[in-house]
Write a protein that binds this DNA or RNA. Structure first.
Lengths: 165, 165
DNA sequence: CGCATACCGGACCGATAGGGTCCGATTAGC
DNA sequence: GCTAATCGGACCCTATCGGTCCGGTATGCG
Protein backbone atom coordinates (compact mmCIF):
# COMPACT_ATOMS: atom_id res chain seq x y z
CA UNK A 1 0.00 0.00 0.00
CA UNK A 2 2.64 2.40 -0.96
CA UNK A 3 4.76 1.26 1.88
CA UNK A 4 8.46 1.68 1.51
CA UNK A 5 10.78 -1.15 2.36
CA UNK A 6 12.21 -1.71 5.79
CA UNK A 7 15.68 -1.37 4.35
CA UNK A 8 14.95 2.26 3.54
CA UNK A 9 13.85 2.86 7.08
CA UNK A 10 17.03 1.26 8.30
CA UNK A 11 19.02 3.43 5.95
CA UNK A 12 17.64 6.60 7.51
CA UNK A 13 18.37 5.31 10.98
CA UNK A 14 21.90 4.44 9.98
CA UNK A 15 22.51 7.75 8.30
CA UNK A 16 21.26 9.72 11.28
CA UNK A 17 23.42 7.63 13.55
CA UNK A 18 26.36 8.20 11.26
CA UNK A 19 25.86 11.94 11.54
CA UNK A 20 25.65 11.95 15.30
CA UNK A 21 28.65 9.81 16.23
CA UNK A 22 32.31 9.78 15.36
CA UNK A 23 33.43 10.74 11.88
CA UNK A 24 34.16 7.16 10.89
CA UNK A 25 32.16 4.20 12.21
CA UNK A 26 32.18 0.47 11.60
CA UNK A 27 29.12 -1.49 10.62
CA UNK A 28 29.23 -3.66 13.77
CA UNK A 29 29.37 -0.50 15.84
CA UNK A 30 26.35 0.97 14.11
CA UNK A 31 24.58 -2.34 14.50
CA UNK A 32 24.97 -2.44 18.26
CA UNK A 33 24.12 1.25 18.52
CA UNK A 34 20.91 1.03 16.55
CA UNK A 35 19.78 -2.49 17.38
CA UNK A 36 19.64 -3.46 13.73
CA UNK A 37 21.16 -6.87 12.85
CA UNK A 38 24.72 -6.40 11.73
CA UNK A 39 24.51 -8.13 8.32
CA UNK A 40 21.56 -5.97 7.45
CA UNK A 41 23.46 -2.85 8.46
CA UNK A 42 26.30 -3.96 6.22
CA UNK A 43 23.89 -4.48 3.36
CA UNK A 44 22.38 -1.03 3.79
CA UNK A 45 25.79 0.62 4.08
CA UNK A 46 26.86 -1.17 0.94
CA UNK A 47 23.94 0.20 -1.01
CA UNK A 48 24.46 3.67 0.37
CA UNK A 49 28.13 3.53 -0.56
CA UNK A 50 27.25 2.46 -4.09
CA UNK A 51 24.95 5.47 -4.34
CA UNK A 52 27.69 7.76 -3.06
CA UNK A 53 25.85 8.83 0.07
CA UNK A 54 28.59 7.44 2.31
CA UNK A 55 32.25 6.77 1.68
CA UNK A 56 33.96 3.62 2.84
CA UNK A 57 37.43 3.18 4.27
CA UNK A 58 38.73 -0.35 3.96
CA UNK A 59 41.23 -2.18 6.09
CA UNK A 60 41.80 -2.13 9.81
CA UNK A 61 40.26 0.81 11.65
CA UNK A 62 38.20 1.40 8.56
CA UNK A 63 34.52 2.16 8.45
CA UNK A 64 31.96 4.43 6.89
CA UNK A 65 31.66 8.18 6.81
CA UNK A 66 29.01 10.57 5.55
CA UNK A 67 29.78 12.08 2.17
CA UNK A 68 27.50 15.06 2.61
CA UNK A 69 25.71 16.75 5.52
CA UNK A 70 22.22 15.49 6.24
CA UNK A 71 20.60 18.75 5.21
CA UNK A 72 21.72 18.26 1.62
CA UNK A 73 20.33 14.75 1.26
CA UNK A 74 16.66 14.54 0.27
CA UNK A 75 15.00 11.31 1.31
CA UNK A 76 14.16 10.71 -2.32
CA UNK A 77 17.84 10.01 -2.81
CA UNK A 78 17.92 7.53 0.04
CA UNK A 79 14.90 5.72 -1.33
CA UNK A 80 16.45 5.65 -4.76
CA UNK A 81 19.66 4.24 -3.32
CA UNK A 82 17.93 1.39 -1.52
CA UNK A 83 14.82 0.60 -3.51
CA UNK A 84 15.76 1.84 -6.94
CA UNK A 85 14.29 4.79 -8.84
CA UNK A 86 11.04 6.24 -7.59
CA UNK A 87 8.37 5.23 -10.07
CA UNK A 88 4.96 3.98 -9.10
CA UNK A 89 4.55 2.37 -12.47
CA UNK A 90 6.88 1.46 -15.30
CA UNK A 91 5.04 3.49 -17.93
CA UNK A 92 6.97 6.55 -16.85
CA UNK A 93 10.22 6.84 -18.76
CA UNK A 94 10.41 7.52 -22.46
CA UNK A 95 7.66 4.92 -22.54
CA UNK A 96 7.93 4.53 -26.27
CA UNK A 97 9.09 0.96 -25.93
CA UNK A 98 7.68 -0.07 -22.57
CA UNK A 99 4.09 -0.96 -23.36
CA UNK A 100 3.91 -2.88 -26.60
CA UNK A 101 0.21 -3.41 -26.10
CA UNK A 102 -0.59 0.25 -26.37
CA UNK A 103 -4.04 -0.41 -27.68
CA UNK A 104 -4.79 -2.46 -24.60
CA UNK A 105 -3.18 -0.01 -22.20
CA UNK A 106 -5.93 2.62 -22.14
CA UNK A 107 -4.16 4.64 -19.54
CA UNK A 108 -0.72 5.27 -20.93
CA UNK A 109 0.98 8.06 -19.06
CA UNK A 110 -1.85 8.01 -16.60
CA UNK A 111 0.28 7.86 -13.50
CA UNK A 112 2.72 10.52 -14.61
CA UNK A 113 1.21 13.40 -12.60
CA UNK A 114 1.11 11.16 -9.56
CA UNK A 115 4.72 10.18 -9.97
CA UNK A 116 5.94 13.71 -10.33
CA UNK A 117 3.88 14.90 -7.39
CA UNK A 118 5.30 12.24 -5.12
CA UNK A 119 8.80 12.72 -6.38
CA UNK A 120 8.60 16.42 -5.61
CA UNK A 121 7.23 15.79 -2.16
CA UNK A 122 10.06 13.38 -1.44
CA UNK A 123 12.72 15.70 -2.75
CA UNK A 124 11.54 18.59 -0.60
CA UNK A 125 12.25 16.75 2.64
CA UNK A 126 15.85 16.17 3.73
CA UNK A 127 17.32 13.84 6.30
CA UNK A 128 17.90 16.81 8.58
CA UNK A 129 14.15 17.39 8.72
CA UNK A 130 13.58 13.82 9.77
CA UNK A 131 16.31 14.04 12.36
CA UNK A 132 14.62 17.03 13.95
CA UNK A 133 11.26 15.31 13.80
CA UNK A 134 12.53 12.52 15.99
CA UNK A 135 13.09 12.44 19.73
CA UNK A 136 14.43 15.49 21.63
CA UNK A 137 18.23 15.69 21.89
CA UNK A 138 18.25 14.20 25.36
CA UNK A 139 17.36 10.85 23.87
CA UNK A 140 19.53 11.21 20.79
CA UNK A 141 20.78 7.69 20.16
CA UNK A 142 21.34 6.28 23.62
CA UNK A 143 23.43 3.20 22.70
CA UNK A 144 21.34 0.59 24.47
CA UNK A 145 24.17 -1.85 25.32
CA UNK A 146 22.27 -4.97 24.48
CA UNK A 147 23.26 -7.94 26.65
CA UNK A 148 22.47 -10.75 24.20
CA UNK A 149 21.20 -11.34 20.66
CA UNK A 150 17.75 -11.86 22.13
CA UNK A 151 16.66 -8.22 22.44
CA UNK A 152 18.48 -7.54 19.22
CA UNK A 153 16.01 -9.77 17.43
CA UNK A 154 13.16 -7.99 19.12
CA UNK A 155 14.44 -4.64 18.03
CA UNK A 156 14.82 -5.85 14.50
CA UNK A 157 11.24 -6.98 14.66
CA UNK A 158 9.88 -3.53 15.42
CA UNK A 159 12.23 -1.03 13.82
CA UNK A 160 9.62 1.60 13.07
CA UNK A 161 7.58 -0.07 10.42
CA UNK A 162 6.22 -3.20 12.11
CA UNK A 163 3.62 -4.63 9.80
CA UNK A 164 1.86 -1.75 8.10
CA UNK A 165 -1.04 -2.66 5.78
CA UNK B 1 10.75 1.59 -4.90
CA UNK B 2 7.49 2.91 -3.71
CA UNK B 3 5.59 1.02 -6.33
CA UNK B 4 1.89 0.60 -5.85
CA UNK B 5 0.23 -2.72 -6.46
CA UNK B 6 -1.09 -3.85 -9.82
CA UNK B 7 -4.53 -4.14 -8.33
CA UNK B 8 -4.58 -0.40 -7.79
CA UNK B 9 -3.65 0.18 -11.39
CA UNK B 10 -6.39 -2.20 -12.45
CA UNK B 11 -8.81 -0.35 -10.21
CA UNK B 12 -8.18 2.92 -12.03
CA UNK B 13 -8.60 1.23 -15.38
CA UNK B 14 -11.83 -0.34 -14.26
CA UNK B 15 -13.20 2.88 -12.81
CA UNK B 16 -12.42 4.83 -15.95
CA UNK B 17 -14.05 2.14 -18.01
CA UNK B 18 -17.04 2.18 -15.71
CA UNK B 19 -17.42 5.91 -16.26
CA UNK B 20 -17.23 5.62 -20.02
CA UNK B 21 -19.65 2.79 -20.70
CA UNK B 22 -23.21 1.99 -19.76
CA UNK B 23 -24.51 2.92 -16.35
CA UNK B 24 -24.36 -0.64 -15.10
CA UNK B 25 -21.77 -3.14 -16.25
CA UNK B 26 -20.89 -6.71 -15.35
CA UNK B 27 -17.44 -7.81 -14.34
CA UNK B 28 -17.04 -10.17 -17.34
CA UNK B 29 -17.93 -7.30 -19.62
CA UNK B 30 -15.33 -5.03 -18.07
CA UNK B 31 -12.83 -7.86 -18.22
CA UNK B 32 -13.19 -8.34 -21.96
CA UNK B 33 -13.21 -4.60 -22.51
CA UNK B 34 -10.04 -3.92 -20.57
CA UNK B 35 -8.14 -7.15 -21.15
CA UNK B 36 -7.80 -7.78 -17.45
CA UNK B 37 -8.52 -11.37 -16.29
CA UNK B 38 -12.11 -11.61 -15.20
CA UNK B 39 -11.60 -12.97 -11.66
CA UNK B 40 -9.17 -10.18 -11.00
CA UNK B 41 -11.68 -7.63 -12.19
CA UNK B 42 -14.22 -9.16 -9.86
CA UNK B 43 -11.78 -8.91 -7.00
CA UNK B 44 -11.07 -5.26 -7.71
CA UNK B 45 -14.75 -4.45 -8.02
CA UNK B 46 -15.38 -6.18 -4.73
CA UNK B 47 -12.83 -4.03 -2.94
CA UNK B 48 -14.17 -0.90 -4.58
CA UNK B 49 -17.69 -1.81 -3.57
CA UNK B 50 -16.58 -2.38 0.01
CA UNK B 51 -15.05 1.09 -0.01
CA UNK B 52 -18.24 2.59 -1.39
CA UNK B 53 -16.68 3.81 -4.63
CA UNK B 54 -19.01 1.64 -6.70
CA UNK B 55 -22.41 0.14 -5.92
CA UNK B 56 -23.28 -3.43 -6.78
CA UNK B 57 -26.52 -4.78 -8.12
CA UNK B 58 -26.93 -8.50 -7.53
CA UNK B 59 -28.99 -11.06 -9.38
CA UNK B 60 -29.66 -11.47 -13.07
CA UNK B 61 -28.85 -8.43 -15.18
CA UNK B 62 -26.92 -7.06 -12.24
CA UNK B 63 -23.54 -5.44 -12.28
CA UNK B 64 -21.61 -2.46 -10.95
CA UNK B 65 -22.18 1.26 -11.17
CA UNK B 66 -20.16 4.30 -10.15
CA UNK B 67 -21.27 5.86 -6.89
CA UNK B 68 -19.72 9.24 -7.60
CA UNK B 69 -18.37 11.05 -10.66
CA UNK B 70 -14.67 10.58 -11.34
CA UNK B 71 -13.83 14.20 -10.60
CA UNK B 72 -14.82 13.76 -6.95
CA UNK B 73 -12.66 10.70 -6.36
CA UNK B 74 -9.04 11.39 -5.41
CA UNK B 75 -6.69 8.55 -6.21
CA UNK B 76 -5.75 8.45 -2.55
CA UNK B 77 -9.17 6.99 -1.98
CA UNK B 78 -8.67 4.34 -4.64
CA UNK B 79 -5.33 3.37 -3.18
CA UNK B 80 -6.84 3.22 0.28
CA UNK B 81 -9.64 1.03 -1.02
CA UNK B 82 -7.31 -1.49 -2.64
CA UNK B 83 -4.11 -1.43 -0.65
CA UNK B 84 -5.30 -0.18 2.70
CA UNK B 85 -4.57 3.15 4.36
CA UNK B 86 -1.75 5.23 2.97
CA UNK B 87 1.04 5.01 5.50
CA UNK B 88 4.63 4.48 4.60
CA UNK B 89 5.37 3.30 8.10
CA UNK B 90 3.28 2.17 11.03
CA UNK B 91 4.63 4.76 13.48
CA UNK B 92 2.11 7.25 12.18
CA UNK B 93 -1.11 7.05 14.13
CA UNK B 94 -1.44 8.01 17.76
CA UNK B 95 1.76 6.04 18.04
CA UNK B 96 1.54 5.90 21.80
CA UNK B 97 1.18 2.15 21.75
CA UNK B 98 2.76 1.14 18.46
CA UNK B 99 6.48 1.06 19.26
CA UNK B 100 7.00 -0.50 22.65
CA UNK B 101 10.75 -0.28 22.15
CA UNK B 102 10.73 3.51 22.10
CA UNK B 103 14.24 3.70 23.44
CA UNK B 104 15.41 1.62 20.52
CA UNK B 105 13.34 3.47 17.96
CA UNK B 106 15.46 6.60 17.64
CA UNK B 107 13.32 7.98 14.90
CA UNK B 108 9.83 7.97 16.27
CA UNK B 109 7.56 10.14 14.20
CA UNK B 110 10.33 10.52 11.72
CA UNK B 111 8.32 9.68 8.64
CA UNK B 112 5.34 11.82 9.58
CA UNK B 113 6.17 14.77 7.30
CA UNK B 114 6.78 12.36 4.46
CA UNK B 115 3.48 10.63 4.99
CA UNK B 116 1.51 13.83 5.11
CA UNK B 117 3.26 15.21 2.05
CA UNK B 118 2.50 12.13 0.00
CA UNK B 119 -1.04 11.93 1.26
CA UNK B 120 -1.65 15.51 0.21
CA UNK B 121 -0.15 14.93 -3.19
CA UNK B 122 -2.36 11.90 -3.71
CA UNK B 123 -5.48 13.68 -2.54
CA UNK B 124 -4.97 16.56 -4.92
CA UNK B 125 -5.25 14.35 -8.01
CA UNK B 126 -8.61 12.89 -8.99
CA UNK B 127 -9.50 10.10 -11.36
CA UNK B 128 -10.73 12.67 -13.86
CA UNK B 129 -7.21 14.08 -14.07
CA UNK B 130 -5.83 10.65 -14.86
CA UNK B 131 -8.53 10.04 -17.41
CA UNK B 132 -7.54 13.21 -19.27
CA UNK B 133 -3.87 12.31 -19.02
CA UNK B 134 -4.46 9.14 -20.97
CA UNK B 135 -4.91 8.62 -24.69
CA UNK B 136 -6.92 11.09 -26.82
CA UNK B 137 -10.67 10.38 -27.02
CA UNK B 138 -10.36 8.65 -30.36
CA UNK B 139 -8.75 5.70 -28.62
CA UNK B 140 -10.95 5.83 -25.56
CA UNK B 141 -11.39 2.17 -24.63
CA UNK B 142 -11.64 0.37 -27.97
CA UNK B 143 -13.01 -2.98 -26.75
CA UNK B 144 -10.44 -5.27 -28.38
CA UNK B 145 -12.68 -8.31 -28.90
CA UNK B 146 -10.17 -10.89 -27.89
CA UNK B 147 -10.57 -14.19 -29.72
CA UNK B 148 -9.20 -16.56 -27.06
CA UNK B 149 -7.82 -16.52 -23.51
CA UNK B 150 -4.32 -16.50 -24.99
CA UNK B 151 -4.02 -12.77 -25.74
CA UNK B 152 -5.89 -12.14 -22.54
CA UNK B 153 -2.99 -13.59 -20.60
CA UNK B 154 -0.58 -11.44 -22.57
CA UNK B 155 -2.57 -8.35 -21.81
CA UNK B 156 -2.63 -9.19 -18.15
CA UNK B 157 1.12 -9.53 -18.27
CA UNK B 158 1.66 -5.93 -19.38
CA UNK B 159 -1.19 -3.88 -18.00
CA UNK B 160 0.74 -0.68 -17.44
CA UNK B 161 3.06 -1.62 -14.67
CA UNK B 162 5.19 -4.42 -16.07
CA UNK B 163 7.90 -4.95 -13.52
CA UNK B 164 8.58 -1.63 -11.81
CA UNK B 165 11.48 -1.73 -9.36
C1' DC C 1 57.18 -8.92 6.83
C1' DG C 2 53.10 -11.41 8.67
C1' DC C 3 48.76 -11.11 11.02
C1' DA C 4 44.48 -9.21 12.46
C1' DT C 5 40.79 -6.20 11.26
C1' DA C 6 37.14 -4.56 8.39
C1' DC C 7 35.02 -3.60 4.06
C1' DC C 8 33.39 -5.69 -0.58
C1' DG C 9 31.02 -8.71 -3.68
C1' DG C 10 28.51 -12.46 -4.57
C1' DA C 11 25.12 -16.32 -3.77
C1' DC C 12 21.67 -18.46 -0.77
C1' DC C 13 17.35 -19.23 2.01
C1' DG C 14 13.05 -18.44 4.32
C1' DA C 15 8.86 -15.54 4.99
C1' DT C 16 5.40 -12.41 3.55
C1' DA C 17 1.73 -10.96 0.63
C1' DG C 18 0.22 -9.92 -3.59
C1' DG C 19 -1.96 -12.04 -7.80
C1' DG C 20 -4.91 -15.30 -9.52
C1' DT C 21 -8.57 -18.98 -9.27
C1' DC C 22 -12.48 -21.43 -7.62
C1' DC C 23 -16.92 -22.45 -5.42
C1' DG C 24 -20.99 -21.14 -2.59
C1' DA C 25 -24.73 -17.53 -1.37
C1' DT C 26 -28.08 -14.32 -3.14
C1' DT C 27 -31.19 -12.04 -6.05
C1' DA C 28 -33.84 -10.83 -10.14
C1' DG C 29 -36.48 -12.56 -14.07
C1' DC C 30 -39.58 -16.25 -16.24
C1' DG D 1 -41.65 -21.52 -7.58
C1' DC D 2 -37.82 -22.35 -10.47
C1' DT D 3 -33.94 -21.20 -13.13
C1' DA D 4 -30.16 -18.52 -14.31
C1' DA D 5 -26.99 -15.02 -13.80
C1' DT D 6 -24.20 -12.40 -10.69
C1' DC D 7 -21.98 -11.00 -6.39
C1' DG D 8 -19.48 -12.50 -2.18
C1' DG D 9 -16.04 -14.92 0.43
C1' DA D 10 -12.38 -18.56 0.96
C1' DC D 11 -8.33 -20.77 -0.96
C1' DC D 12 -3.76 -21.56 -3.14
C1' DC D 13 0.35 -20.44 -5.68
C1' DT D 14 4.18 -17.79 -6.93
C1' DA D 15 7.22 -13.70 -7.03
C1' DT D 16 9.57 -10.54 -4.42
C1' DC D 17 11.67 -8.83 -0.33
C1' DG D 18 14.04 -9.17 4.00
C1' DG D 19 17.73 -11.38 6.15
C1' DT D 20 22.01 -14.33 6.34
C1' DC D 21 26.39 -16.24 5.15
C1' DC D 22 30.91 -16.95 2.93
C1' DG D 23 35.16 -16.10 0.26
C1' DG D 24 38.12 -12.20 -1.36
C1' DT D 25 40.74 -7.90 -0.80
C1' DA D 26 42.87 -4.02 1.23
C1' DT D 27 44.87 -1.58 5.20
C1' DG D 28 47.09 -0.74 9.74
C1' DC D 29 49.75 -2.66 13.55
C1' DG D 30 53.06 -5.61 15.89
Amino acid sequence: MLRLSKLTDYAVVVLVRLAGGATVQTSPGIATATGIPEPTVAKVLKALAAAGLVTSQRGAHGGYRLSRPLATVPIAEVIAAIDGPIALTACVDGSATSCEVLSLCPVRGRWDPVNTAIREALTAITLADMQEASIPPAFRIPVPVLPSPEPLAKAADVPSLPVAK
